[in-house]
Design a protein around this nucleic acid. Structure first.
Lengths: 198, 198
DNA sequence: CCACGACTAGGACGCCTGTCCTAGTACTGA
DNA sequence: TCAGTACTAGGACAGGCGTCCTAGTCGTGG
């Protein structure tokens, strides 16, 4: 609680980045220590185990995600624009996603494979997006479908992220984002004057 | 080249499964040896390094994928049915995907994070599906769009797999598969008598 | 001035990893 | 029968890992 940014926060920041870029398991204490610029042993004073750092990282992600969503609620005029803002993430963070995939999806899957107790907490980040998207669709007048629509947007984004990472194809990403925007247009139009029901 | 199934093949099989379930890095030589039922040291006779095993696993996956696609070409009457067969994978392999995600997507991403030289070979499995799907769409009369459509189907499947793994929700998977089938219906109808162009 | 807590550096520890060696067995072909 | 090859078991090896300890520094409050 001393410096401008506490050592603890610096550790979490560095670990957050390294877990994203190289995975949780492949990131060693030594690597985090080097990134922060502190000694390995010093770690023990802030975090007893690697799992504690992981929990710290997930909590930081939950916090920053909540902040981002709140910012979108402030900045964007309506729910439709907010959903579109979400859809654009894969472009906004295009470079990182090409290199490392989606931070949420990849961490969740790694923890699933490791059978790690923190898996459910990693899923909570997904749930944050899911709930927020559902609320946007509810604000758009959808009721029972809202959650389905939220999950669809989430799934679409995940698919784009995975293939962006595999193929490093920015044009593909743009094309699929446009497609998702188009899908959203149709859903909103359908809902305004329902004719078909797909 | 002795037994009914060679030791080498057994090693590749076990490693294939373990790499899928626990990840490449988290799978140790000892774990593979135990799964096969041979001694750790014996490994060296078949594979010099862990990377060699990985390459063997990827080659095995390429081989089995090609075989599966060829089987679908034999079994399914037309290209549309074949694409639908692909879409159904996330249900056919639903249990595994819920637990471990898509074998192709998760391995590709792990190797990307490890900056592993075999990454491009893992992507080749994706390319196999991509090319095959494109050929099906070409057989359906699409030309320039064929590859886009292939990538869309691929991306959709990846998104479903990722969220299936995160949320363990079989109903969601079924809903999204239905949605993708519906999308395919529209594309095929549009193409038969083009009216709109989304 | 002193005591105390917050913080840090450096290294020791036991364990597990991938790699590699060596001795030994089983089978094959001349 | 014998040589040679394919294969196996078991363990040695160095290095890296997460964890943990200890000694020491710094800054603040009594």
């Amino acid at each position: 609680m001393a410096g401008s940014t506490s050592t603890r926060a610096q550790i979490v920041d560095a670990a957050n980045r390294l877990f994203y870029e190289h995975g949780f398991e492949h990131t060693s204490f030594a690597a985090i220590a080097e990134a922060v610029g502190i000694s390995r042993g010093n770690f023990y004073h802030h975090f007893k185990t690697k799992d504690e750092i992981l929990i710290g990282v997930i909590e930081a992600r939950l916090h920053s995600t909540r902040a981002m969503l709140a910012e979108w609620e402030r900045d964007e005029p309506g729910p439709a624009e907010r959903v579109r803002r979400f859809v654009e993430i894969v472009i906004t963070n295009g470079a990182d996603i090409e290199n490392y995939g989606c931070p949420v999806g990849t961490l969740t899957n790694e923890l699933a494979k490791l059978d790690h107790p923190a898996r459910s907490q990693a899923v909570a980040v997904f749930e944050l997006f899911r709930t927020w998207l559902r609320e946007q669709f509810e604000a758009l007048g959808f009721t029972v479908e809202a959650d389905d629509l939220a999950m669809h947007v989430l799934a679409f984004s995940q698919g784009i992220a995975t293939l962006s990472n595999a193929f490093h194809d920015g044009e593909f990403v743009q094309r699929e984002v446009d497609r998702l925007h188009g899908w959203l247009d149709e859903r909103l139009a359908d809902h305004a004057s329902p004719r078909s029901r797909r």
